[in-house]
């Protein structure tokens, strides 16, 4: 490559540089094609078969699995549970995160330290988060219900109660991921252009008016990216449920990922599980396309 014209960078043969560019890109492209795209395609093929561990023959069943899914009450249950979970977690995390972010934009002593401690839950391994909250939610002997009893609030049985189990898992997720919104929104608020805000002050707008009519609209692109990222991740949650409830009591906390895992690796119906996972791929592809569009618009 030494024979290029070093003194005339603009005359440098652009095709040649382009070639090097492609060569550098190629290993990563191939790697991801083999590790992620090939499995995705293979999974699509599996979803049209009745592939099961230990069954000697595999037959092509066309759309049979997909037809079965639409009559599968467990599937619809897991879809509802996932939708509830995603809505509950992401909306709470966003509102809490926005509130804290607004407080943290004020200047005060120890702000950096406080921000650092508040972001800590985000850095904890999700499985450990599950263990932590499993411990706190033990109704009979841990501190959470004891604290509640001081205030004369009878604590529920958390993970064992049908109506509370999903909320309990959601609380663990909220604890871990509210910091994500705190992080994104504080830096978003700090880097807002000051002129329109000052202009509004001069015109006599109140603090809340400036927030609702100036800051919030300016933050909207950032907020939509953060929300979509969290929706995608929350929709795929698996670890927390495995550690905290095993999907129970009954099927009260069976998130979609958990259901797919159970169909595939507990009941060994891999073809059926693959078909279920493709419905998930479909939802996530749509969400990702919206996300990518909104990121591209920002750039």
């Amino acid at each position: 490559m030494g024979e290029e014209h070093p003194f005339l960078p603009h005359r440098e043969p652009i095709l040649k540089r382009r070639k090097i560019g492609y060569i550098l890109l190629l290993p990563s492209l191939l790697f991801l094609l083999v590790i992620i795209i090939y499995p995705l395609v293979y999974s699509l093929y599996l979803s049209f078969t009745d592939f099961t561990f230990g069954k000697p023959f595999t037959f092509f069943v066309g759309l049979g699995n997909y037809q079965d899914i639409f009559h599968d009450e467990y599937f619809f249950n897991s879809l509802t549970v996932t939708a509830k979970f995603t809505f509950l977690t992401v909306s709470t995390e966003f509102i809490l995160g926005l509130g804290v972010a607004l407080l943290l934009t004020r200047r005060f002593k120890g702000r950096t330290f406080i921000r650092t401690t508040m972001l800590a839950p985000m850095m904890i391994t999700p499985v450990v988060v599950g263990i932590i909250w499993r411990l706190l939610f033990q109704p009979d002997f841990t501190i959470l219900n004891y604290i509640l009893s001081i205030f004369k609030i009878p604590g529920p049985l958390w993970l064992q109660e049908h109506n509370w189990a999903l909320i309990s898992v959601a609380i663990a997720d909220i604890w871990q991921w509210t910091p994500f919104f705190i992080l994104i929104l504080t830096s978003g608020l700090v880097s807002l252009p000051q002129e329109p805000i000052e202009a509004a002050w001069v015109d006599g707008a109140s603090r809340s008016q400036t927030f609702w009519y100036i800051s919030l609209p300016l933050l909207k692109p950032l907020i939509s990216v953060a929300l979509l990222l969290r929706i995608i991740d929350s929709f795929r949650t698996y670890d927390l449920v495995y550690v905290m409830t095993y999907g129970g009591p009954g099927t009260a906390t069976e998130l979609l990922s958990y259901r797919i895992w159970k169909e595939g690796f507990v009941f060994q119906r891999l073809g059926y599980a693959a078909a279920m996972s493709y419905i998930m791929v479909f939802v996530l592809t749509i969400l990702s396309l919206i996300l990518i569009r909104s990121i591209r618009r920002r750039i």
Partner: peptide
Amino acid sequence: FAFWFLSTRMMPPAAVVIPIYLL
């Protein structure tokens, strides 16, 4: 290309794990 790379991050592990297991 850049966004294609990014999009692989959004794929659900549950959809990839079965073929990877078999492979």
